[in-house]
Design a protein around this nucleic acid. Sequence first.
DNA 1: TGACATCCATGACATCTGTCATGGCGCGAT
DNA 2: ATCGCGCCATGACAGATGTCATGGATGTCA
Lengths: 201, 201
Amino acid sequence: MINVLLAEDQAMVREALAALLGLEEDIRVVAQVARGDEVLEAIRTSGADVALLDIEMPGQDGLAAAAELRRAVPGCRIVMLTTFGRPGYLRRAMELGADAFLVKDAPAAQLADAVRRVLRGERVIDPTLAATALSVGADPLTERERDVLRAAADGSTVSEIASRLHLSEGTVRNHLSSCIGKTHARNRADAVRIAHENGWL
Amino acid sequence: MINVLLAEDQAMVREALAALLGLEEDIRVVAQVARGDEVLEAIRTSGADVALLDIEMPGQDGLAAAAELRRAVPGCRIVMLTTFGRPGYLRRAMELGADAFLVKDAPAAQLADAVRRVLRGERVIDPTLAATALSVGADPLTERERDVLRAAADGSTVSEIASRLHLSEGTVRNHLSSCIGKTHARNRADAVRIAHENGWL
DNA sequence: TGACATCCATGACATCTGTCATGGCGCGAT
DNA sequence: ATCGCGCCATGACAGATGTCATGGATGTCA
């Protein structure tokens, strides 16, 4: 019997996935959480063999939860399950040591399949997604540039970003300019969109 | 026995929801589609009593599918099911004559419950969401302003938008300016964000 | 230690953006 | 038929934005 933890913030989706996995004879959902920062404790108390982690979650995102889990409970298998097949997500998940990376677009049968395979020591990745992730390349932004771009994502002005990050306006403009250059964007908003789509923010 | 059609583009979520509804003794999922423009035909061939429609879908969005369905098959009940509880979505769904509006954040039990209730002629809406939808108010943008703002959403420049919509640059700037004013935004990107969050785009 | 990258900052410049006043056109409502 | 409104356009202006050259302060790596 495979014991699975399910971490997904949308209750209806989470319980639906639990129902789906419940149809499998050899799989049992032993814990469900809705927040990234509840994963570790739930794994410890439930003793699950596999953690199924969504990425977009409150508290702590699924990638951070995976990193924490990898350190604290190295034996636990990690399956990332996300709506968005952003290349940067896949890359970060792999660097963190996740065992599988699934998108919710994929057929339902792949879920139980992936759970079984990671338990046998295999790694499961959508080959198409892997290809695009490799072709897109790694995040070209520096940490500071990412900070500034994130701060610009909601439509803030330069002066607002500057005061929020305790920088001068000129510095903010310089960072944004290099973000625009590195992402081959036309302007700030475009750079935000591109970085977002690639999973760099 | 209640016959349900399920329209949702993410295969894994769709099949998981089907598994969830399959646990109910009085409900049967008789059709599944992944695109909005396949809803009507599937309803006709399956003869489903209730259509469960996601909003974000390729081909045609769930709201457009609901409108089409309401006209062509007035007897069919419509339940909107969406990730995002955007006020504008709820408002448009109600104006279109949807019978229920659920968010995927809600507990799974509400899904089957809503299906049964709409079939008894009730309308099902999350009261919290209804309150915010009413407090936010209706979309203040004109059709043309919406067009321009949509065209600006991906970070396009004024000249690009102008040529795409066959307008002069000055007109584009004027429309954008009034979008910014009406949404109480700080600039274009902010206006895009606000309109998006409210479900106006 | 030197080479190098990152981060921060300044100032100057061209361009883009947002605002405003103004006016014409078409349409539906009073 | 006049009014209001949406739509399109122009021109002008201030302010925001993006680019560039330049330079100092750090920290890392060979």
